Simulated assay, not measured.
Amino acid sequence: MTAAIIADGIRKRYGDIQAVDGVSLNIETGEFYGILGPNGAGKTTTLEILEGVREPDEGRIEVFGKSPWPRNPALLTRIGVQFQASSFFDKLTTRETIRIFASFYRVGPRQADAMLERVGLTEFGSVSADKLSGGQAQRLSIACGLVHDPEIVFLDEPTAGLDPQARRNLWDLLRLINQEGRTVVLTTHYLDEAEILCDRVSVMEHGKVLRTGAPAALIRELDDMVRVSVESGLIRQEAMQDLLEWAGVEESVVEDDGVSLSVSTRTPGPVLSILADQGALRGLEVRGATLEDVFLQLTGREYRA
């Protein structure tokens, strides 16, 4: 596959803050690519530089072989952008809003109305933008970024603040956008979202890319323990520990919080056999490492507002 976006050593500083510090990315055509990181990691600034919205202090960026900065008219029709926060004319209807955005690209009202239907907002076409729910407003924002049929779509935390049902409905839309052949570049705080949607991700911290790869590959590299849990009270913690030692299961940790008895281990097979022999399988849950575990290992567990 050919590269849709190449970033080589990009940097951006705001006063004493180094927001982006030598970021290099290679995003392939048709790829669903995620940029992850805690608050202040530099995700949004990186995305804005790739979009051509912000000028880098250093580095090289190519989008379809062209520099997006200074604003390149040849790229504007090939790029769609959904910003982290979007503002619409409150008193305009949903249909009027998307038609205005369509007019910026000389796209007619028929194509604008068709995009409204594609994002599931046809029945809200006469509703003013300020009356839309959070999920509906995000769909409108994405529709405005897609109305001119771009080849690359940049999405900055598109599901932030949405309820679980709205998030998953939006995931279906994002999958469809990608399946139609578009390159999608997404920033998100939701690790489950990135693990489900993205072909590859880059984890950022303090303006740097710490690791890049397919979510499944990054999880395999972690080589973390598997957590086997059953209902508490089925077998005593001490008895479980003794049985594990007798079976020669090494590097296992047994915990009982009064709700679940859990065994963290690299060899879950013998653990499951012991629980089965003891008739202690009620509430069984087996959980391997996730992208969240990778994220926490790379960025730490310290809370950042």
Results as ranks from 00 to 15, higher is better:
Met115Asn: 15
Ile100Gly: 11
Asn169Val: 05
Val147Pro: 10
Gly233Arg: 07
Ile35Asn: 00
Gln82Ser: 09
Glu62Pro: 11
Leu296His: 15
Glu151Arg: 11
Thr159Leu: 06
Glu117Met: 15
Asp130Phe: 03
Phe101Leu: 14
Glu58Ser: 14
Arg220Val: 03
Gly108Leu: 12
Val259Glu: 09
Phe64Met: 09
Ile142Arg: 10
Leu281Glu: 04
Val185Trp: 05
Arg282Ser: 13
Gly40Ile: 01
Gly213Ala: 08
Ala3Asp: 15
Leu162Asn: 08
Val230Tyr: 06
Leu140Lys: 13
Thr122Phe: 10
Thr44Arg: 01
Glu292Asp: 14
Thr188Met: 07
Leu173Asn: 12
Ala160His: 01
Val253Arg: 13
Val230Ile: 15
Val249His: 00
Lys131Leu: 01
Asp113Arg: 09
Ser229Val: 01
Leu275Ala: 06
Leu281Ala: 03
Asp293Cys: 11
Ala85Met: 13
Val286Glu: 11
Pro270Thr: 07
Ile35His: 01
Pro109Ile: 14
Pro150Lys: 08
Ser86Pro: 01
Thr159Asp: 04
Gly233Phe: 05
Thr290Glu: 10
Met225Ala: 09
Val254Gln: 00
Ala289Lys: 04
Trp246Leu: 07
Val263Phe: 00
Leu275Ile: 11
His206Ser: 10
Glu285Lys: 09
Ala194Lys: 03
Glu157Phe: 08
Gln297Asp: 14
Trp69Phe: 12
